[in-house]
Design a protein around this nucleic acid. Structure first.
Lengths: 202, 202
DNA sequence: CAGACATTTCAGAAAGTTCTGAAAGTTTTG
DNA sequence: CAAAACTTTCAGAACTTTCTGAAATGTCTG
């Protein structure tokens, strides 16, 4: 009986690419739910799961997207700090490499979202509060006899209810903000610390 | 000189509505960045900042949106658990009221996002892992002479790098998941606890 | 149980976003 | 410094999401 023939590896190139595809597709689907375009999420996933840096043409080819789209997506990822530009000796092309430390990734995402979304929101909420938290009784108003239902003045209790809700929301967002800032600022494995800490308590 | 007449509050109805508008607009802008439509975010903001329950026509009128849109948005908000249907004696219309406890709101949002986004993602990531974590060293491979670059087998080091990144990502998502589950499950002011706890540590 | 009132659904329209491809711009090389 | 190599930009096309309005469905009331 002849010796067993050499057996091909358990994972073919095609299978491996198919696995990567599944990973990439999973991120792509998440994208829109988190306010990022599908393609941007896919480009990130591709760079993350591929350990080697890739150039624009490789990204274009792998994901079947246009040069313009690839360029834009890569630029955004670099702006978010999730991907770095890499230069290779003797190669004029630019290569892109995903941050591989998932904790660093988390911190960068949180930092950017704070900067782009939470902080502007806080600014606006403070502005809103200032418009109704003005000292009361300073301004006079003499109602004319024909005040309609729709332009009757705002009652104190309406104002109180409004201010209570506004303040609650402000406090919430501020708490989230402080918590996130702390995580972002923390050296090293911030979330890990947070996690172990919380698990001890509850 | 006649005695000073009773003084109404310093904020006119119009100003009050303008303040609410600013609040609503701020949320509306956040919406898309968090994977929710602008209108849905606005409807929620309106209901939240208005203490009284509103009916569909009031929402339509206030935000200038169609009946269909209002109906759909309200339904989604009810599905997310952020808004409750309220019935009033002697009124056949349905009223909608936002959850007013911001901590309860947070918990509901987190619970839903876990269910809709994180858990499916975890499932897929596990599937992906199972496709490359098969036992190694069991199978042999002898390359034939004419293997092309594109269909050369996947090397062990490629596989290792892939698995390392995949596992890191999985661990991250799982940590986030556990942390969030804990917060969601916690009675009462979960985030507040988290916040004070973290602030003590770092 | 008929009519009035209220809500939901959904096809098509409108609005918004993402993508392409080619032209313009930039950098490198010989 | 001209040509080649590479990257960025952006107008319009393609696609996706959101919205409208009217019809269908559901519910209440006398």
């Amino acid at each position: 009986m002849p010796r067993q023939r050499p057996v091909p590896p358990p994972i073919s190139r095609d299978d491996f690419e198919a696995v990567r595809d599944q990973f990439i597709a999973a991120w792509g689907q998440m994208g829109p739910a988190w306010g990022v375009s599908r393609t941007m999420a896919e480009v990130f996933a591709l760079l993350f799961i591929t350990s080697e840096p890739l150039n624009t043409d490789q990204v274009m080819g792998r994901l079947r997207i246009s040069r313009g789209n690839a360029s834009m997506s890569l630029r955004s990822l670099v702006e978010w700090g999730l991907v770095a530009r890499v230069h290779r000796r003797g190669d004029r092309k630019e290569y892109f490499q995903a941050e591989s430390d998932v904790w660093a990734l988390s911190r960068k995402v949180i930092r950017e979202r704070l900067r782009r979304e939470i902080h502007p929101l806080l600014t606006t909420l403070h502005e809103v509060r200032d418009r109704t938290h003005q000292p009361i009784g300073l301004v006079r108003f003499t109602p004319s006899s024909d005040v309609h239902e729709t332009d009757r003045p705002v009652t104190q209790s309406e104002l109180d209810a409004h201010n209570r809700r506004l303040d609650d929301m402000l406090e919430l967002i501020q708490t989230i903000d402080r918590l996130a800032e702390r995580f972002v600022g923390a050296e090293g494995k911030g979330l890990r610390v947070a996690a172990s800490l919380l698990s001890k308590l509850v």
